[in-house]
Each structure stands twice: as structure tokens, then as C-alpha cells.
């Protein structure tokens, strides 16, 4: 089947929230409401004619007025594919510090969505509700902000390490006459990161596991005082 046939099957099955097929695009895509995403994907996966067994890719794209999450689905049995999109409108004045869009997770349907959605949360700050393991994946858990947002401001240091390109190398630093302090964050401080409810880090707002003593992940950010070794 081509995209038109799949779209007409999908529009006939899911009652509401399935938009028209945009055939002018290079890869024709369908936009569905966030609320209809899970029923639509469930239908595409289970319907005998669609049989989208594979979720190839989950991508979040930040645009001027919205953040859209793009799902690339394909079927090995029928050798066809479909691009599915869902959009969350940007509220007035929504920046990466104040606005965390929420989209339902499809990790219960496709195991591959687990890591893809974690990566989009990590880099673009899209929260996938009902995700089984909603942690960062590429950046450290204590990282602040989501770097692929357009209004992200580069940090000046992380864990005591200077990140500015023109920062003074450690071995050239003079303790007596410290170099100029880094400029303040232009978009206002402090940068508030919403607590991660699924994190097992004790200071992340989640529930600490019973055996957090001696846990491999229990190193706190900023506690790098050089002790121990």
C-alpha cells in the first residue's frame, strides 16, 4: 500500500484527531493529535493490512510555533512506510526553561521507542508520559537544560570544568589573580529543570531506591571535592 491507502485506512479506524495526508512533502506525512497518537499507532501496528512492525525513528523538531514529534514507521511484511507527526503548540513566551511539552509514550507498543524517546527528552526536553524509564540517555543525569532547543544557552562550566572555548587552561591558572568571572546567563538565573519523577536519584524529586547506599549512580553533582582517592 502507499501512504494514501494507509492514511485512508487509519482515518476510517480512529474516530478523531487524524489530520489530512500532506502529499506535497517529500515523504508524505499524517498529523495526529497527541491524544490520538497511541490509538493511531496501535492501529497501524496491529491492522493486518498496515502491519507496521518497526518503529524506525522518533524525532522531536522545534519550530517557531510548536514542537512536533515525528515517528517513522515501516512494515517489513508489506514493505511500506509511513511518517506520523504530532504537534504540541507553544504557549505564549514558552522557552526551554519554562515549557516542557508532553506527548504520550509509545514505548509500550515498540521497545525501540524506549531509547529514542529518552534521547528526545534529553536533547529537546519533550516529556513522554507513561514512559517506563524516563531518564536522560546521552548527557549526564545532572545536566541542566536541553541543548537542542533553539534558545538553549551554553553553560560556562560543568562539574568544575570550564566549557568556554577561550577559558584559561587549568595549568595556566593563577590562584592569586583569578581570571574574570564568567558572564551571567543572559536568559535569567537560576535555570529551573523540572524534577524527573522516574529518576531514582535521591535529589531528583523521585523516590530513592532502598539500596541506594553504595549504588553506582549515587554520585551527587557538585560533590566533586577530590576526596576519596
Amino acid at each position: 500500500m502507499n501512504e494514501t491507502d494507509i492514511h485512508s485506512k487509519l482515518a476510517g479506524a480512529v474516530v478523531s484527531g487524524v489530520g489530512a495526508l500532506d502529499e506535497s512533502a517529500k515523504d508524505p506525512f499524517v498529523v495526529v493529535d497527541p491524544g490520538s497518537l497511541v490509538p493511531a499507532v496501535t492501529f497501524l501496528k496491529n491492522d493486518a493490512d498496515c502491519r507496521m512492525e518497526m518503529l524506525n525513528c522518533v524525532t522531536a523538531v522545534e519550530r517557531e510555533d510548536c514542537i512536533e514529534v515525528v515517528y517513522h514507521l515501516s512494515s517489513v511484511t508489506h514493505r511500506h512506510s509511513l511518517t506520523l507527526k504530532t504537534r504540541v503548540e507553544r504557549p505564549a513566551g514558552g522557552t526551554h526553561e519554562s515549557w516542557i511539552p508532553e506527548v504520550p509514550s509509545v514505548a509500550a507498543l515498540y521497545a525501540s521507542a524506549d531509547w529514542h524517546e529518552r534521547e528526545q527528552w534529553d536533547l529537546l526536553g519533550v516529556r513522554f508520559t507513561d514512559h517506563p524509564d524516563h531518564r536522560r540517555i546521552l548527557l549526564p543525569e545532572e545536566w541542566i537544560g536541553h541543548p537542542l532547543r533553539k534558545d538553549y544557552v551554553y553553560p560556562h562550566e560543568h562539574g568544575g570544568m570550564p566549557l568556554d572555548l577561550d577559558a584559561v587552561p587549568l595549568y595556566e591558572r593563577d590562584e592569586a589573580t583569578p581570571s574574570e568571572p564568567a558572564a551571567p546567563r543572559p536568559s535569567g538565573t537560576p535555570l529551573v529543570q523540572p524534577p524527573n519523577p522516574n529518576s531514582d536519584r535521591p535529589d531528583a524529586g523521585g523516590v530513592a531506591p532502598a539500596d541506594s547506599d553504595g549504588d553506582l549512580r549515587s554520585i551527587k553533582p557538585g560533590s566533586n571535592d577530590g576526596g576519596g582517592h
Binding site: 512492525e53 518497526m54 518503529l55 524506525n56 517489513v76 515498540y110 521497545a111 525501540s112
Partner: peptide, 10 residues
């Protein structure tokens, strides 16, 4: 890795 699992994990 069974077939279904392979497809499920992409």
C-alpha cells in the same frame, strides 16, 4: 533474539 523481539526493538 527471536524474530518478533528483533522487530520490536527496531
Amino acid at each position: 533474539i527471536p524474530k518478533d523481539m528483533a522487530l520490536d526493538y527496531g
